[in-house]
Design a protein around this nucleic acid. Structure first.
Lengths: 219, 219
DNA sequence: CGGATCACTGAACGATTGTTTAGTATGCTG
DNA sequence: CAGCATACTAAACAATCGTTCAGTGATCCG
């Protein structure tokens, strides 16, 4: 770990510590990152980290609420209203710049903890209301289970975030993930416009099968 | 960590160690699991773990190749040919039973390491050839980018695996993830049959926009 | 029977972990 | 200027980490 002071100088010490923590937690995970490594990356002593954040867990919570504020756009100019979807779109368009936040966000969501669940639930809520209004406008087809459809569409949006590494490696090692996102756009829109199947035989068969066993939710 | 010997007795010590490692690595991650915890769960001494597997990293590699064999179905009766898709379907139908393997597999894939990349690449290959034959048979619509479409469909299949926790929590805490999978089936088939959009205006707009800037791959 | 190999354990090793403590420097407030 | 809170560090703390070592039984082979 020869590289230190990887966070610029013109920030307060707590801010440098927080930025370094997000970068290292995102890159190596919480357990794989030591307080000493964070302190070195922020250019401070290990004791100062705990002086400002109480404990390593307290630092994680500070990073969580910071990333939530960053995702929801409660920073910078408070002019624009943001949410997870729009922020992710912005970040994925410049992965090199937002790499720390992207990695931290991905880990938070797949982790399934309180923060990840809150962010995902928010994304599903937004997706559901968006789909509802677009369905009313005739843009989107009605669904037999709007909540689950919203959840599915939401997860599809998270795919480039949480599966970026394996995706890139399975499509020739471009490594440039913004090009990957761009290449995903057209096939995704094709799928969302015409579906995958040429006709409705598979769906009809599944519908008939579910009609045959209607007691689905009661064990 | 009072609970130990969580792996049955009637297995060889290396097998018990490996099973305990898969369960703990899957539940808490590699860094979050100590050799001592694995040894306790397997009912052996910590030294025996390293005696059989050389190091903690060696144990991980053994778990990786074990899970690969398990996924590819190179075990039990060698009669049936399996792959990632069919194995995942079988495991997700009985999540309680296959919880350790499911969690370990999910972590391996999102980790993006060698094993995860190999498994995912295999899944994309299988999906691509399946889609190709079904396209030729008129079941599946042709795609403008078959490889990427296969990758997208593959990632959609991994969604319940890697996002199970947040998914369950955003749809009322059932916790029973097999019911979650069942509820996902119909909306997914609706999406794959009719698409999400009512008409092709969004796709047409995107296609026109990409025609306007055709120099996509050359930086 | 004798020797060797093997599975296995208890105890310890040094390194690293998160955290605490004592202390220094700085800058604000009265 | 005195007093005090704050930012910050060096050093050490106990605990845990992965790993090593010496040694014990048991099994097997000749």
């Amino acid at each position: 770990m020869l590289i230190m002071r990887s966070v610029p100088e013109d920030l307060t010490a707590p801010a440098r510590i927080r930025d370094a923590a997000i970068a290292l937690f995102g890159a190596q995970g919480y357990d794989g990152t030591s307080v000493r490594a964070i302190a070195a990356a922020a250019g401070v002593s290990p004791a100062l980290v705990l002086h400002h954040f109480g404990s390593k867990e307290g630092l994680r919570e500070a990073c969580d609420s910071w990333i939530i504020d960053e995702v929801m756009g409660r920073k910078e100019g408070l002019t624009t209203e943001h949410d997870l979807a729009s922020t992710m779109q912005e970040w994925l368009a410049d992965t090199e710049r937002f790499r720390p936040s992207l990695d931290y966000l991905a880990r938070t969501i797949v982790d399934g903890g309180e923060t990840g669940a809150r962010l995902f639930a928010h994304l599903v809520d937004r997706t559901e209301s968006m789909l509802a209004s677009q369905t009313e406008a005739g843009i989107v087809r009605p669904s037999s289970d709007p909540r689950m459809t919203a959840a599915i569409v939401a997860t599809h949006g998270l795919v480039p975030l949480v599966l970026e590494r394996v995706l890139a490696r399975s499509l020739g090692d471009t490594g440039l993930s913004s090009a990957l996102i761009a290449r995903m756009t057209l096939p995704t829109l094709e799928l969302y416009t015409h579906g995958l199947y040429a006709d409705s035989t598979v769906l009809d068969a599944a519908t008939a099968a579910l009609k045959g066993t209607p007691s689905e939710g009661a064990p």
